[in-house]
Amino acid sequence: MTSRFERLLSIALPAATAIAVTVTWQVAVTLADIREILLPTPLAIAGSLGRNLPSFLQQALITGREALAAFTLAVVAGFAGAALISSSRILREILYPAIVALQLIPKVALAPLFIVFLGIDAEARITFAALLSFFPILISTAIALHNTDFAAVRLCRSLGASGWQTFWSVRVPFALPAFFTGARISSTMAVTGVVIAEFITSREGLGFAILDEGSHSRTDAVFAAITVLCVLGLALYGAVKGLEMISVRWYRG
């Protein structure tokens, strides 16, 4: 197998699979005469998407805005928290039980609490989603900051660099890959958090749209709304990935 053939296959095979699945779906549902509300055909979904696009986009804007806000909060708090934890042993020991506890709690179960405490508007959803997405960044960055190559840190100390200087010029660059790994997971969690909250508050946003269409048995619209949400999630993930590539190249050459 030459490598050119392999490269071609690695694009052709997945594409063919996608097409095959879509076609089979369309044909099977039509032939087996499955009810519309159970499993709509891809064409029906596409149609519903076309019809509902304006309203879905509006909801997407709300969900997207909130997810972005939550993600930003999570990044800032996560990075700051990681810096704090990795630098101070005392703090680490004090905060350790809190972190363990929050890791052990299935955090999604906290959603109703946030909504009751903070209301049924954006604040509650943003804060909840931020809590969900804060941890991946905190943990992965803290570990990476703490585990910076010992030899590099020793070099800094021998050159008389302060803790602050060491932090920014050695620890952070080393920790960047881990930070972005956490950030990518966080971006997904931010969207997930907002959607879960929207399920409960059921007022606005794509999560609400999905629920609403579902309650009216408009399954094709449910699929369409889910598709829009997937695109949103992918867009955010892609943005983070793009930022990762830029900053890693800039910082590390």
Partner: peptide, 24 residues
């Protein structure tokens, strides 16, 4: 090879949103 990109996408999208579908 055939499934790899799809699996990556599957990983990333907020699957939680499908809960109402399962209710249907």
């Amino acid at each position: 090879q055939a499934l790899f990109p799809h699996l990556v996408l599957f990983q990333i999208v907020p699957k939680i949103a499908l809960a109402p579908l399962f209710v249907i």
